[in-house]
């Protein structure tokens, strides 16, 4: 799905999920590793504030990913 959206629309698609090898297999180009499978963009166990903070951090990383020139599949770890 990620790959086909990027191909069809010609715009950067950042995928945030937890199992990085699967994202590499399906052909995602800009990859941000998520927190956990049931909550990729949140950390509910650290309370509402911690959860929101984590989500903001991951989205900032996604913005960085979509603004970065890349030549191949890239994992944005920080």
């Amino acid at each position: 799905m990620v790959r086909e959206i990027e191909k069809e629309a010609g715009i950067p698609v950042v995928q945030i999920a937890t199992i990085v090898p699967i994202m590499l297999t399906v052909g995602a180009n800009r990859i941000v590793p998520g927190v956990a499978i049931p909550h990729p963009v949140g950390d509910p166990e650290s309370g509402p504030e911690g959860d929101r903070k984590k989500r903001r951090e991951l989205l900032q990383r996604a913005f960085k990913a979509m603004s970065t020139e890349i030549k191949e599949q890239t994992i944005f770890k920080d």
Binding site: M1, I5, A9, I11, V13, V41, L59
Partner: peptide, 10 residues
Amino acid sequence: GVDAVILTST
């Protein structure tokens, strides 16, 4: 006219 996408997966 969307410029970029964030796609989340579980």
